[in-house]
């Protein structure tokens, strides 16, 4: 299994000017790795809509790479989006699925289909141009530069070591809930410059 921070490090090395849209636990580790926070959108309040938000950005800004850092529990809430992505087939779309098999922020209960879902097969069957799967850190780090240079849409499934939240709850504040809309506007401003 691969550690979250190793995934973030490998993607950060290749992100360039990419917009990065994240969900749940991925947001925490991506925030620690990202060197372009003005291009990051954490979507912890979107109930599985990371892929759809990222698709909209990719279609509206076709010259800008867009990376969705999705979770397996999030994506099974929005499975149809894979077909929607495959149908529009944006070349600038990279879909990373962190596969830990559990709902980490609610204490680690298994998701439906844990250990059974074949993400690369589903992606390819939905019209993605390529799909990859990694369970080894070194192999992932070695292959990431080549994969990130390919035309999309691409799905990269990464088996990660679960980071279980033990306090069973996310403490929400007015400030924390203002982060997503603020970052959406930040990216909107950045994209308007290009």
């Amino acid at each position: 299994m691969i550690e979250y921070q190793d995934v973030a490090t490998a993607i950060q090395r290749e992100r360039g000017e990419a917009v990065v849209v994240t969900a749940m636990t991925q947001s925490k580790f991506w925030k620690e790795a990202s060197d372009r926070p003005e291009l990051d959108i954490p979507t912890n309040n979107s109930m599985g809509k990371v892929s759809s938000i990222a698709l909209g950005i990719a279609l509206g800004a076709p010259d800008r790479k867009v990376i969705a850092l999705d979770g397996d529990g999030s994506l099974i809430m929005n499975m149809g989006s894979l077909v929607t992505v495959g149908n529009k087939s944006p070349k600038n779309f990279v879909h990373v699925v962190y596969d830990n098999g559990v709902y980490a922020i609610t204490g680690g209960q298994p998701i439906a289909g844990a250990g059974v879902i074949n993400w690369p097969a589903i992606a390819m069957g939905s019209g993605y141009k390529a799909a990859y799967s990694f369970e080894d850190t070194e192999e992932m780090a070695t292959e990431m530069p080549r994969i990130m240079a390919e035309d999309g849409p691409i799905l990269i499934r990464i088996q990660v070591k679960p980071v279980i939240t033990t306090n069973l709850g996310v403490i929400q504040t007015w400030e924390s809930n203002a982060v997503m809309p603020r970052q959406m506007r930040s990216v909107k401003v950045e994209l308007a410059k290009s």
């Binding site: 959108i41 979107s46 809509k49 759809s52 938000i53 990222a54 698709l55 909209g56 950005i57 990719a58 279609l59 509206g60 800004a61 800008r64 929005n78 149809g80 989006s81 929607t84 959406m184 990216v187 909107k188 994209l191 308007a192």
Partner: peptide
């Protein structure tokens, strides 16, 4: 249909 508003939000972020 649940995808629609999320995709629209992304397009709006991209200044469409």
């Amino acid at each position: 249909e649940g995808e629609a508003i999320a995709i629209a939000a992304g397009l709006w972020i991209a200044n469409q």
